[in-house]
Design a protein around this nucleic acid. Structure first.
Lengths: 346, 346
DNA sequence: GCGCGTTACTAACGCGCGTTAGTGGATGTG
DNA sequence: CACATCCACTAACGCGCGTTAGTAACGCGC
């Protein structure tokens, strides 16, 4: 359809001339809600001229005149932990639904980098800002952000002034543990993260709540804190299995640690999902799917969080004085094959 | 510093009033190359007013007046294969160096999605367009793209009209194979991808060239084509190891297949990097780093390709009639611990 | 013939900024 | 003292568009 060779920037005026009406009329046809008294025939002629000339509205000019850019800014560390990319996906989908465009920038997380990114966004007059991190933690943003509605995703404001969307770590830990209990386990090892970070705190509380609910006493010897990497999972699992009363199931707070745990379990001649059950956390497809056997794990709801963040922005724009809230999103259990079926009754 | 409570959009005129000069003067100070006859004292007063009022130039208005947006568009399937996110990083870094901002959009790869993304970019009057894919292949873009300089990254134009930046698969395959030969291996299994895709073709030709150069005959029984997933790597490795004259080293065309191969090797009681060497391809950190032992592999130079793509855009803008070229970027070998040291001499 | 309501448009302003063509005063030159 | 330079600025235009206020033509009832 478009027959516009190169760079000949067609303007609205060109369209108007081509049709033989005024620019205003063209503008009405293109944006108007059929409200203005323009007959269908004129509308058609305008539309025909638009495709014929390859006219494309100039977003900048339009923003200038209408005083709204329909732009949301998304700043993220995606580049460091690419697996959080689904935040971007969810955000884009929701933005598209609302007729907005996403302006994406990445940051390395440093204050300078954050500031530069935010500055760029503000120069482009975004109508809202989303700041997303690759791991759940507290952040403190440059004060620039009070110029525009802002939502934090997968992190929260240490000053508690900004809205945030975070995963329900406790419910995730609970779901993982319950899955193991449901399969008949009552000695469940837990390889957790550094106990001071939000993910570790939440997952642990879920673990404990599940045990309590099932009437199983908490045995601190079954809980080991590590930093999330595979070899630490290996070490911790080895320690658990070689201990006095080894567990029959292990809940790992990251899929990477589960990956290491797999090796320790296999080395000792146990079969995973049979002799010993494993549940991970994060649902890093690339690991969980391809581990042998595939890993039952808890997903961080990135896509959903991204979408929720954008949706929240719209609400904030409508009501800027909404008190800062923490929006909590459920972490679903993703069933694969590393947990044995319920025992038939012993 | 900024003391701008909320949404009070400060314009250049406000700054001018505050200083007691005309808006033109402010504009000169802010953009001028010290060329105009404005004394340092006035400049200082303007700058002071700028920070005092929290003035921030309006990118849209500036673009409208200056007729350049300083915007590059980047369209990618990042969301599907997040590990290619380094393309974004490289592109952003290069864009920053050139004083440009990246407008990023993701696509699901469908024509419709591509078209929408490109359309959005063009409405924002990007000065160049980068289209990046998560796996090396031929693509065909909507014809819209001749309105603006366009570069393909990690893919190439089936119509051969567009510039592209692609990895040197053959050199990567050669490097991997040479590494194994250098460690003393002369029976080297090769688990390749679907033989019709560019990655498979290139890596195979590199494999063969290395063998030839070392005077090792090609044994087609040692080459197996699979689809890249872990369990296929497992199956293929098992077949190789259980064959009549098993290899002592395996070159896997993806790290995921190497992951599966690890299991097959371990199951048979071999020690990786000792009895049997393995080299992967892709350098998916999350796998290569955490596999036990860590995986020596060939990296796809995403970051570099992203940067090269942006740099190319600048050249294209200066000279639109550059004949379409394929820019080939080297794939470096990333040394880890899955290849044994050279044998001391038998 | 007059007043009035529709219908189908258009003139003109302003969004925030870059930029060109000046302007008015101070300084130097013969 | 007339004249040319500089110096330090400013008025005014236009970028592409949304939008408000208006206009001109027509039909209709009385």
């Amino acid at each position: 359809m478009e027959t516009n060779p190169r760079q000949a920037k067609v303007t609205m005026q060109d369209v108007a001339n081509h049709v033989g009406v005024s620019r205003t009329t063209v503008s009405f046809v293109l944006n108007g809600e059929t409200g203005n008294g323009i007959p269908q025939e004129t509308r058609d002629r305008v539309h025909r001229a638009v495709t014929e000339l390859g006219y494309r509205p100039n977003a900048g000019a339009r923003a200038l005149a209408s005083k709204q850019t329909k732009l949301y800014g998304l700043i993220t560390e995606i580049v460091i932990a690419p697996y959080a990319a689904n935040i971007v996906r969810g955000a884009e989908e929701q933005a598209a639904r609302e007729g907005k465009t996403l302006l994406i920038a990445s940051t390395d997380g440093s204050i300078d980098s954050d500031r530069r990114a935010i500055e760029t966004m503000l120069e482009h007059r975004v109508e809202g800002l989303i700041y997303a991190t690759s791991w759940h933690r507290g952040v403190r943003l440059p004060a620039l952000t009070d110029e525009v509605p802002t939502v934090l995703v997968h992190c929260f404001d240490e000053a508690a002034k900004l809205h945030s969307v975070i995963p329900d770590e406790a419910q995730g830990g609970y779901a993982a543990t319950m899955r193991l209990i449901g399969a008949g386990h009552d000695r469940i090892g837990f390889i957790n993260l550094d106990p001071v970070i939000p993910a570790a705190i939440g997952r642990r509380s879920g673990y404990i709540r599940a045990l309590e609910q099932a009437g199983i006493g908490l045995d601190e010897k079954l809980v080991i804190n590590e930093d999330g990497e595979a070899d630490q999972g290996y070490r911790a699992a080895a320690a658990l299995l070689d201990g006095a009363r080894p567990p029959t199931a292990i809940f790992c707070a990251t899929d990477r640690m589960a990956m290491g745990a797999y090796d320790a379990i296999k080395e000792r001649g146990f079969r995973i999902g049979d002799d010993i059950s494993v549940v991970g956390f994060d649902n890093q497809e690339i690991i969980a799917n391809y581990l042998r056997p595939s890993l039952t794990t808890v997903a961080l709801p990135f896509r959903q969080m991204g979408a929720t963040g954008v949706a929240l922005l719209a609400k904030l724009a409508a009501n800027r004085d909404l008190a800062p809230l923490q929006h909590i999103v459920e972490c679903p259990l993703v069933e694969r094959t590393s947990v044995r079926l319920p025992v038939p009754a012993s």
